[in-house]
């Protein structure tokens, strides 16, 4: 019984189906509750539960890499992001605005009907789909040896389809750039004065502080482990980065600022390091007479692991910056000196 996936193999088909059915119903129920909740806080909490249950579903689908990402990134970090921005919205902005009965009934039908039709059509098409040509799983197995990594998902992400991954790393960096672009500029800024967002700083909780102090190093260790293990088992740079960012978020809510202010230049350097390293590695291969982003078989393993290390640190910096939100307005426009 080394993994959960293994242990479920022993279950009888009937028990598996029953378990899957219950899981599916639970997931659908939490999603329904979250989508129809009038309170944002409730919706977010249900969304986190939804994400954790979904991680279980990914395990059942035989996709442990996705399960880890779902738990760490999907449910964990997205939940933190939602909660963080809830803290910045004023009380009356965190509930659905009231509507008359007629309005809400109209909305329900006008949106509900087409959506049910769309979902039904999708289910029909997907269920009746007949594969004509097999996928590339066989090719992945055949060529995996040339990538040096034994986790097929990592082989796809960092070698066979590394262009996708490069662009995805840039997307995350771009989210930070765009968020930082939201800072009001100079004295000519129109509209009501923007209050610098107050960092949520609850009174110090001794028990929480004790717990977080002990958890933080452990969680960092988990992050490093996830990066290291990614080449051979489920895990990888993104999952690692999400765990590290979650530690930061935890330190933040317990009133301890661990990281330098995200706006500082060293942090910005770290944020761009992942994209820059990825692109530079691709160009270096070109300069060595190979193809853009190519990984020669002899050094592929080393390059993938080291690149994933840089990516993990850099993505963690980006995620931390996203959790912390836009930096405070520049000095000349803020009220405080």
């Amino acid at each position: 019984m080394s993994t959960l996936a293994m242990s479920t193999l022993a279950m009888s088909p009937l028990a598996t189906t029953a378990f899957d059915g219950m899981l599916a119903v639970l997931i659908a129920w939490t999603a329904w509750q979250s989508v129809t909740s009038r309170e944002v806080f409730r919706a977010v909490m249900l969304f986190v539960v939804f994400g954790l249950l979904l991680a279980l579903a990914w395990l059942r689908l035989g996709a442990p890499d996705v399960a880890l990402a779902e738990a760490a990134v999907g449910a964990g970090l997205t939940g933190v992001l939602f909660l963080e921005s809830l803290g910045h919205l004023r009380r009356n902005k965190t509930v659905e605005p009231p509507e008359t009965v007629a309005q809400s009934r109209l909305r329900r039908w006008a949106v509900g009907l087409p959506v049910v039709v769309a979902g039904g059509l999708l289910a029909m098409v997907a269920l009746r789909l007949e594969p004509r040509v097999p996928g590339i799983a066989g090719l992945v197995v055949r060529h995996q040896g040339e990538t040096g990594v034994s986790n097929p998902v990592t082989a796809v992400l960092l070698d066979f389809r590394s262009t996708d991954t490069l662009l995805e790393v840039v997307v995350l960096l771009l989210a930070v750039i765009a968020t930082y672009g939201l800072v009001p500029h100079g004295p000519a800024h129109h509209g009501p004065r923007v209050r610098p967002p107050a960092t949520p700083r609850p009174p110090r909780q001794p028990v929480l502080v004790w717990f977080v102090r002990r958890l933080a190093p452990l969680a960092l260790l988990v992050g490093v482990y996830l990066w290291w293990v990614g080449s051979s088992a489920p895990g990888g740079a993104f999952q690692a980065a999400a765990v590290v960012a979650a530690v930061f978020a935890l330190l933040r809510v317990s009133g301890m600022e661990a990281a330098p202010p995200p706006n500082a230049r060293p942090m910005r350097l770290l944020m761009v390091a992942g994209s820059v390293a990825f692109v530079s590695q691709g160009l270096a291969m070109l300069a060595a007479g190979r193809v853009f982003l190519d990984l020669p078989e002899t050094v592929a393993y080393g390059l993938i692991v080291s690149l994933e290390g840089v990516l993990a640190a850099s993505l963690a910096a980006c995620l931390i910056a996203l959790v912390a939100g836009a930096p405070r307005p520049p000095r000349q426009s803020g009220e405080r000196p």
Binding site: D65, L77, T165, E168, A175
Partner: peptide
Amino acid sequence: PLPQALVLTGIVISVAVTAFGLALAR
């Protein structure tokens, strides 16, 4: 493994988009 890789990419993109959307909401 290919759809799994696609979904991992999708998850990261959706976090990025959500984060920026929340910054805009703020």
